[in-house]
Amino acid sequence: MLVKSLLGEFLHEAENTRKLLNAIPNSALDFIPSAHSWTTAQLASHIAEIYDWYPGTFHGNEFNMDTYKRDEVDISDIENIIGKFERAFNRAKESIESATDKSMFEDWKMTAGGKTVLQPMPRIQVIRGFLMNHIYHHRGEMIVYLRSTGNKVPSMYGPIYEDSLR
């Protein structure tokens, strides 16, 4: 029942991510709101990348960042980033569908450089924080980027400000 619930949320929220990525025009990809921020293209690519972390999180007990293989794409075209998202989405969906409720309570950790960077914790906690909430956080940033560049934001949870302007 737990995995089924996660899959339902995942499918609903991935559609929101898809809407958001499809709202990004190529003209906004170089926008950077501050010296400490990513460009729109880098942020969009990161959002897509998180979906590629699902298989290693759902089916491994350790996510070693040293051996992780990124799906590197040319981020100067939003279609490449959307393609990266779609490939990662399919792998993520398969990883959830093949998971078990029992596995949600097994410990999971992240390592890099031979060190533990995220201490062992139940997989379900990692899925909620490291995967799902992480994506939602960055989608919120992307909404600010889109509005800052004068672009429309898609409706994800009902009516939005832009709807009132019609």
Rank of each mutant, 00 (worst) to 15 (best):
L118N: 08
G8M: 05
A44F: 07
G114N: 10
I127C: 02
Q119P: 00
G129E: 08
L29C: 12
E106M: 12
A99I: 06
N16K: 13
I47R: 01
F89S: 05
Y161V: 15
A92N: 09
S95W: 10
E141C: 03
S5R: 13
E162Y: 11
I160S: 12
Y145S: 08
F31R: 05
E49K: 02
F63I: 03
G140R: 09
K115Y: 08
D66N: 14
I32K: 14
I127Y: 07
S103M: 10
S34A: 15
H137A: 07
I50C: 01
A35L: 06
S5T: 11
V153Y: 00
I75R: 02
M110C: 06
M110F: 09
H12W: 06
L20F: 04
Y51M: 11
S76T: 15
D77G: 06
G56T: 03
E72C: 02
N26T: 05
Q125T: 13
V73M: 05
Y145V: 10
W38D: 04
E162L: 15
S155V: 09
A28H: 03
V3T: 15
S95C: 11
W108K: 01
E62A: 07
P25W: 04
S34T: 15
A23Y: 01
A14Q: 09
H36V: 08
R18W: 04
R123G: 04
E13I: 01
V3Q: 05
K102G: 07
D77H: 09
G140I: 15
L165T: 04
E15T: 14
K109M: 14
S98H: 12
M65N: 07
W38Y: 12
T39D: 14
G60R: 10
A14P: 00
H12R: 14
T39M: 01
I124P: 00
I127L: 13
L7V: 15
A14F: 02
N64C: 13
K109D: 02
S98Y: 00
P25D: 10
F63W: 09
R70G: 05
D163F: 13
A23H: 05
V117G: 01
E49H: 07
E72K: 14
I32V: 13
T39G: 10
G129W: 05
H138S: 04
L118E: 06
A88Y: 02
N151G: 03
A35W: 04
H12A: 15
I32T: 11
P55R: 01
T39Y: 00
S34P: 00
H36L: 07
L118V: 14
W38N: 08
W108T: 02
F10M: 06
Y157S: 08
I78L: 08
F63K: 03
R70D: 13
T149N: 12
D101K: 08
Q42I: 00
P122H: 13
T149A: 11
P33N: 15
Q42A: 14
A48R: 01
M156W: 00
T57P: 03
G140T: 12
E97L: 12
I127M: 13
M65I: 09
S95V: 07
H137N: 11
T111S: 13
G60T: 15
T116P: 04
P159I: 12
I160Q: 04
D107G: 11
E97F: 05
I160T: 11
I24T: 07
D77F: 01
E15C: 08
A28F: 04
M1D: 12
K152L: 10
F105W: 13
S164H: 07
